[in-house]
């Protein structure tokens, strides 16, 4: 055995190095692998996927439609007869179909609302925190004003001026829920920007915007993801609060929030009307939370 590698060995090493280069794992890919190792998160993802599927195709399985009233079966507990598998509500409408149909709305509101909040929140918070000084304090004033703003008026105003639509609910929800996000992002940014790698980037001549987008934002994604996972249930609940005020989704359409709201009013006499939609709601929200946790752990860039 010789210590000097022969030509063939050399070639193999070069090839291996090239292969490494090609398959060099990115931060995100790494995160993906770590995420897949988290059982709770993966299970949640599967459940959510199933839930999504059920919400999309489930209503087709039932002979009932979400808005048809069955006068002969009002407030009927879950039964296999009449194919009212989940029972009916006070007006004899099939809960199975209504829960799944309501799920569509809730999913949409939750995801889109959170997305709006996250995007605006990150940008606003990161810019404020990173720039600091006068700009920061001005942006924080804006935030304070908005935060102490009676948004209920804003929502009522929007709904009455532009009519009641689902799109508007997203905008309304997104518009009022990025504030906390922005605040948290700003807090994180302030503590990040004094870190060495940011200084290093600046010394290397990176532009400010590039520093924010490339270095600050990825590093606060962990906390953002956790917070976003708190936002999704928040969005879904906020939608029900809007429904409660009469600004939510229009009947006969429904949402989980609205169904739970209705069910809560008769929980002692018609428990299934609360338990079933609340079950769907809580399982979904739990899943979002576990996925959030999983993503946080996976995205954690610090050495472990």
């Amino acid at each position: 055995m010789t210590l000097t590698p022969d030509a063939g060995d050399k070639e193999a090493v070069v090839q291996f190095a090239q292969a490494l280069e090609i398959e060099g794992r990115s931060l995100w890919k790494d995160a993906g692998i770590r995420f897949m190792k988290n059982r709770a998160a993966v299970a949640s993802l599967i459940i959510l996927a199933l839930m999504g599927l059920a919400v999309l195709v489930g209503p087709l399985l039932s002979p009932h439609s979400y808005d048809a009233m069955d006068w002969s079966a009002m407030t009927v507990p879950p039964t296999l007869e009449n194919s009212h598998w989940f029972g009916t509500d006070a007006l004899g409408r099939d809960l199975f179909v209504r829960i799944l149909a309501g799920g569509r709305i809730s999913f949409m509101v939750g995801l889109l609302g959170a997305l709006v909040a996250v995007v605006i929140g990150i940008l606003f918070g990161a810019v404020a925190g990173y720039t600091g000084g006068r700009v920061d304090s001005m942006m924080m004033r804006v935030l304070e004003i908005l935060q102490s703003f009676p948004f209920m008026f804003l929502v009522i105003l929007m709904v009455t001026l532009f009519g009641q639509s689902l799109m508007l609910i997203f905008i309304a929800i997104g518009a009022v829920s990025w504030l906390e996000m922005a605040r948290i992002v700003r807090g994180q940014t302030i503590s990040l920007k004094s870190r060495e790698f940011v200084e290093a980037a600046l010394v290397c001549g990176s532009r400010q915007t590039a520093v924010i987008v490339r270095h600050i934002v990825p590093n606060i994604l962990g906390i953002v993801v956790i917070y976003a996972s708190l936002l999704v249930p928040g969005m879904i609940l906020f939608e029900s609060f809007l429904s409660f005020l009469g600004l939510g989704v229009q009947e006969p359409m429904t949402s989980w929030g609205a169904l739970v709201n209705e069910g809560a009013q008769s929980m002692d006499v018609a428990a299934w009307q609360l338990i079933l939609p609340a079950g769907f709601l809580t399982v979904t929200l739990f899943c979002f939370n576990y996925i959030g946790d999983g993503m946080r752990d996976a995205l954690d860039t610090k050495d472990r």
Binding site: Q164, G246, L247, E251
Partner: peptide, 9 residues
């Protein structure tokens, strides 16, 4: 089409 509105509106 059903439309519900808050009382004052």
């Amino acid at each position: 089409r059903l439309q519900n509105q808050e009382w004052k509106v």
